[in-house]
């Protein structure tokens, strides 16, 4: 195996660095505390959602309901958690639990996750509409304070991303349970033969996804201060793209939490970069697609070298 193939993390890091350098070149004033804060402002919820998606991809499934789920959490946070914190907390816990149950159900009945989560996206979306039929609500004060805190030297979004990456790296890559969880994605049968209850592991992975989805929705409300039922629908596709940009694979339990966080940062930065380029708004979405293709093309060079 070549050096590059062994250290898959290099590609996401280089992509982010190149994009960051290009941004600074276009707009030198962005190279400041305030500038970085603006660039990565929305990165925290996207990074958390990407980690949630990674938990599902880790066990060889895919979650098409994540965007709707994060939207629902945002609606709960902006209403119940703000007005009646105890009830709000209970609802959020129930949501995490329902994710874990979903994982167990998918495994027990051998259901296709892509379809079950597709159905769940209607359920979450409907509940969100039920709670908040029109945009509104308010962020709890403590959450607002937490998301706008200004640590010395580096902005909050960067500090938070490093913490998210470190915690999930310890949990998924370094810990015993994380290794077994990745094993479920690698070969569920051999994990079962080794005496592990796969159904509980899958429920645990889904529960973790639910937990990070809840955190994503909460931080999103902390930033935007209000919510609506469609606020995070694009997170479904963003999170999948983030995981793959970060060097993850759809099958085999090959995921990288650090890579996923960096992938999410890259996607956030791509949007900011394009607005600096003074590109016509018509082309902004398309250019994001082009950047995605470009970065993934770089991945091809890496894997070719790996095979050689």
């Amino acid at each position: 195996m070549s050096f590059l193939a062994r250290h898959r993390i290099i590609l996401p890091v280089v992509s982010l660095a190149v994009l960051l350098a290009a941004t600074f070149y276009m707009q030198p004033r962005a190279m400041s505390y305030f500038g970085l804060n603006l660039l990565f402002n929305l990165a925290v919820p996207i990074a958390l959602a990407t980690i949630a998606q990674m938990m599902i991809i880790m066990v060889n499934d895919i979650d098409l309901s994540l965007g709707a789920f994060v939207s629902l959490v945002a609606c709960v946070t902006a209403t119940f958690l703000n007005d009646t914190p105890m009830l709000g907390l209970l609802i959020l816990l129930a949501l995490i639990l329902s994710y874990a149950l979903l994982g167990a159900l998918i495994h027990a009945l051998d259901l296709p996750a892509i379809v079950v989560t597709l159905g769940m996206s209607f359920v979450w979306g409907g509940l969100a509409l039920f709670i908040l039929p029109s945009p509104g609500g308010a962020s709890p004060d403590w959450l607002r304070t937490l998301m706008t805190v200004k640590p010395p030297i580096v902005p909050m979004a960067v500090v938070a991303s490093v913490i998210i990456a470190a915690v999930t790296h310890l949990l998924i890559i370094r810990s015993g349970i994380g290794t077994v969880l990745r094993g479920v994605g690698g070969n569920a049968t051999s994990v079962a033969r080794a005496g592990w209850p796969v159904i509980r592991l899958k429920a645990f992975a889904y529960g973790l996804a639910g937990l990070f989805g809840v955190l994503a929705g909460m931080t999103l409300v902390g930033l935007t201060t209000s919510a609506d039922a469609n606020i995070a629908l694009r997170y479904t596709l963003l999170s999948i793209a983030g995981v793959i940009l970060g060097g993850g694979e759809f099958i085999g339990g090959k995921v990288s939490p650090t890579g996923a966080v960096i992938g999410a940062l890259t996607l956030t930065l791509a949007a900011s970069f394009l607005s600096f380029m003074r590109l016509s708004p018509d082309w902004q979405i398309g250019a994001q697609g082009a950047i995605l293709i470009l970065v993934l093309t770089a991945r091809l060079i890496f894997s070719r070298r790996g095979e050689a």
């Binding site: 793209a241 398309g286 250019a287 697609g289 093309t297």
Partner: peptide
């Protein structure tokens, strides 16, 4: 050519088609 997983390839391409339609 790029050996992208179809989900990602069609997702990225759809962003470009969408831009073309908007334009």
């Amino acid at each position: 050519l790029l050996r992208l997983p179809p989900i990602i390839a069609t997702l990225a391409a759809s962003l470009i088609y969408q831009s073309l339609a908007i334009w």
